[in-house]
């Protein structure tokens, strides 16, 4: 039961084996994807045909590598732009929400908090379709009343950004308000009694205190946006984000270029994950 209590050897062996098997289960799919990105075959399947970097660098038409696959590269840039917009919006709104939730004079504070949590409970597909419905109605009303065709209210990247933001803002709010709750309000009071205005006190005392949480929230928001599929699927127009483009390829059956792009994703997520973990360590220290 505990290292301090006597444990039979067999129990120790079983638990070690179980955890090892679990870790293998966790990493098997990722390792498989990575290994077959170097396979010299046009299908991402065994048998092993020899080692190659073609699926990363080849410019040959039938074996187009990632660096020359302009459709995949375009979708990466689309995803980066979307993720950047979602991140900025989410961190700004999340910070404002954190200050709002900390105000003791706010009536209906608990109700507001419950509503803020709600987007995490609603399935992503439903957030997507409801925003699609509403923007479509809005576009039709504007068209009927003024005869204006508002392009960004139709499926496209603006709606994708709004759809992803609708639930990522909750995550940013949770991360930033958890930090603000630990803030010692006497620090801000000290700034105020030394003559700072409320805005100056917030900018020079409170915001720097929140900065690690804001960066942490930004990293999480960026990743969640970059990887989002469910909500995006319902709102995407002609510009595909990377997950949408990859999904299309997967359904058609693709060359191992899909493995190559996956490896790039695995490495960059791992880098961001390590950055986020290091950041939270620093915060605790």
């Amino acid at each position: 039961m505990l290292p301090t209590l006597p444990r039979p050897r067999s129990a120790r062996l079983v638990s070690t084996l179980y955890v090892t098997a679990f870790v293998v289960f966790l990493f098997a799919p990722l390792l498989t994807v990575a290994v077959f990105s170097f396979n010299d075959s046009t299908f991402p399947s065994p048998p092993w045909q020899g080692f190659t970097f073609d699926w990363y660098v080849s410019g040959d038409g039938a074996r187009l590598g990632l660096l020359h696959d302009s459709r995949l590269l375009d979708s990466i840039f689309v995803s980066l732009r979307v993720a950047l917009a979602v991140t900025i919006l989410s961190v700004i709104v999340g910070t404002a929400n954190a200050f709002l939730l900390e105000r003791k004079d706010l009536r209906f504070r608990n109700l507001l908090y419950m509503i803020m949590l709600w987007p995490l409970v609603v399935p992503g597909v439903i957030l997507g379709i409801s925003i699609l419905l509403f923007s479509n109605t809005l576009a039709n009303i504007i068209d009927d009343l003024f005869g204006w065709e508002i392009e960004w209210l139709r499926p496209g990247l603006t709606l994708v950004v709004l759809g992803q933001f609708s639930f990522i803002a909750t995550v940013a709010t949770l991360v930033i308000s958890a930090r603000l709750r630990k803030f010692d309000p006497t620090l801000e009071e000290a700034a105020l009694s030394l003559g700072a205005t409320r805005i100056v006190a917030a900018a020079t005392v409170t915001l720097p205190f929140l900065q690690p949480a804001m960066i942490g929230a930004a990293i999480i928001a960026f990743l969640m946006s970059f990887e989002n599929f469910n909500t995006t699927l319902m709102l995407v127009g002609s510009d595909a984000t990377l997950p949408i483009a990859m999904y299309g390829r997967l359904r058609q059956g693709s060359t191992p270029v899909l493995n190559a792009v996956s490896v790039v994703l695995i490495l960059s997520s791992a880098a961001l994950a390590i950055a986020a973990v290091a950041l939270s360590r620093e915060r605790k220290a």
Binding site: V19, V23, L26, F27, A28, P29, L30, L31, T32, V33, F36, F43, P44, S45, P46, L223, F226, E227, F229, P243, M246, Y247, L250, L258, N259, S262, L265, I266, S269, A270, L272, A273, V277
Partner: peptide, 30 residues
């Protein structure tokens, strides 16, 4: 270390993880 090992795969897109399972499980798979 174990805790971080458990978290790491989930920073990777669900699409990539599912793709891994497809390569493992399909008829011509691993």
């Amino acid at each position: 270390l174990l805790f971080i090992l458990c978290l790491l795969p989930f920073w990777v897109s669900e699409l990539v993880r599912t793709f891994g399972w497809i390569i493992l499980l399909r008829e011509t798979g691993v």
